[in-house]
Design a protein around this nucleic acid. Structure first.
Lengths: 145, 145
DNA sequence: GATTATCGTTGACAAATGTAAATATAAGAG
DNA sequence: CTCTTATATTTACATTTGTCAACGATAATC
């Protein structure tokens, strides 16, 4: 049974540590401490506390390796990103998501392959796309924009 | 002088209130209370506290109208969304942003017009797009993926 | 003018977060 | 076997967040 991890409850600091562990697959606390020092000025204590909290949130699991722990992710980076972006988009008015995506696409460096995929997806969507997306800001009220 | 509002420090609850005020432009506390009740079971006290905190964060400004306040946004919904999405994307590995965008595009209902705009933007970007986007997960380390 | 309905202000309190020191422990070095 | 070192565990503490109740002031109503 895969236990559900809610990546959206990870704090910014915790996410930084996850980023490291996702990248190298797994790590001991000392490795994490060493790597995070390149970016953050946290003490060992701080990092250990964050690691422990991540274990508490089930974002990380531990395996004993003699005296120490090896931490590894209980959720993939992609799944976590999906959860985060879904939550963020859920905060937005439906009507405005398109413009926001246009902005993100414009500002993000994309590979040729990803661009091609997007084009394919968009061509597909165009068939069934509505002329207008309904605003969902307020229950009864009309449109926001 | 426009004072900077950092929309990313708005909490989820605060954002819900902002959503209402953005939609109707401005509102008294009682209006906000009435409208939020359609979604949340917060007491008047809770809403008032949140409004006050939003004023403290400069997200809202107030104008006296007799005994009461009329709250209005100090930041547009679009700017706030931009800040939020920028912050979220900054948490992600550059290499993975493309896939995430593809996913978001797939899952979001988009208007024909927005799709057309995206296609135009993408065609444009394709010219200068790299074959691969560099991973930026760890300073020195190689690629994460 | 007294009573009631509205607002805003204060004060509260538990839980989560950022940040860390102190302490205990086990394992490796000599 | 003792000293040092690497780890983990406990404890701590100020802020922020989610939620409110109580109190005070002002306006509307009877």
């Amino acid at each position: 049974m895969t236990l559900a991890v809610d990546a959206t409850e990870m704090t910014t600091s915790e996410w930084e540590l996850m980023r490291i562990i996702w990248t190298i697959g797994q790590a001991s606390s000392s490795e994490v401490i060493t790597l995070i020092r390149a970016k953050k000025n946290w003490t060992e204590s701080t990092v250990k506390t964050l690691l422990r909290r991540l274990v508490g949130k089930n974002a990380l699991k531990t395996a004993k390796d003699g005296r120490r722990f090896i931490y590894s992710p209980n959720i993939t980076e992609n799944d976590a990103m999906d959860q985060m972006s879904a939550k963020m988009f859920s905060r937005m008015c439906n009507m405005k998501k398109g413009k926001e995506l246009i902005k993100l696409i414009s500002e993000t460096t994309l590979s040729k392959a990803d661009i091609q995929t997007m084009r394919a997806v968009l061509n597909d969507k165009l068939q069934t796309a509505p002329d207008q997306v309904e605003c969902n800001c307020l229950p009864g009220e009309g449109s926001c924009c």
